[in-house]
């Protein structure tokens, strides 16, 4: 599987960094995007953006339940290197934790995950380990691009914003692959 995209963190303008959700407490992400909508009148779509292994990823807000500080992940026997990193106790639920680095075959040595994003997929819960939360972004439809051949199959779309290239995760497909033990 190819990497979703290059690490372009160095080219980002820190001044344009959007408002971050409170990392100390669990945030309910039901509020509208904090990023202003593009000036154009075109249709926009909201995305929840986070960073992992030096890359920026996005989730559709409908998938996202909560953001929590990173907690202990219990590894699963005979599943090392899989997309599922292990299980964690998140608010009393034992939730499978997805390693974005493993799922997208990225080098995870760049940093320790600090936050977890809890997603609800077809009645099941998954948590994504992340390095940092970038916040909610509103993106004009014209900037949302199709994936190219060679991109990871778990990427639904991609877009550029604030000098970041962001990869939108196809959570449905990823959950399906996990259930089929395909990754």
């Amino acid at each position: 599987m190819n990497n979703p995209g290059p690490n372009i963190e160095s080219s980002r303008d820190p001044a344009q960094k959007p408002v971050l959700p409170d990392a100390r407490t669990i945030s309910k992400l039901s509020q509208p995007p904090k990023q202003k909508a593009p000036l154009e009148t075109e249709k926009t779509e909201s995305f929840f953006v986070f960073k992992c292994a030096g890359h920026f990823f996005a989730l559709k807000p409908a998938w996202v339940g909560e953001v929590t500080p990173s907690v202990f992940v219990h590894r699963i026997p005979h599943r090392s290197g899989n997309a599922i990193e292990g299980i964690s106790n998140i608010n009393g639920d034992l939730v499978p934790v997805v390693s974005v680095a493993n799922a997208f075959k990225l080098d995870s040595s760049s940093g320790k995950s600090s936050m977890m994003v809890l997603c609800h997929v077809g009645g099941e819960k998954f948590a994504f380990e992340t390095d940092s939360i970038e916040g909610m972004f509103s993106v004009g439809a014209s900037r949302i691009k199709e994936v190219s051949e060679g991109d990871s199959p778990f990427i639904a779309n991609k877009f550029d914003t604030d000098n970041m290239q962001v990869w939108v995760i196809d959570v449905d497909l990823l959950a399906g692959a996990i259930a089929r033990r395909a990754i």
């Binding site: 005979h78 599922i84 099941e124």
Partner: peptide
């Protein structure tokens, strides 16, 4: 506690607890 069904049968593991 039962394990999340999406994990399927985990080798050597029957259930979980806290």
């Amino acid at each position: 506690r039962a394990l999340n069904t999406s994990l399927g049968k985990i080798a050597c593991v029957s259930a979980a607890a806290l």
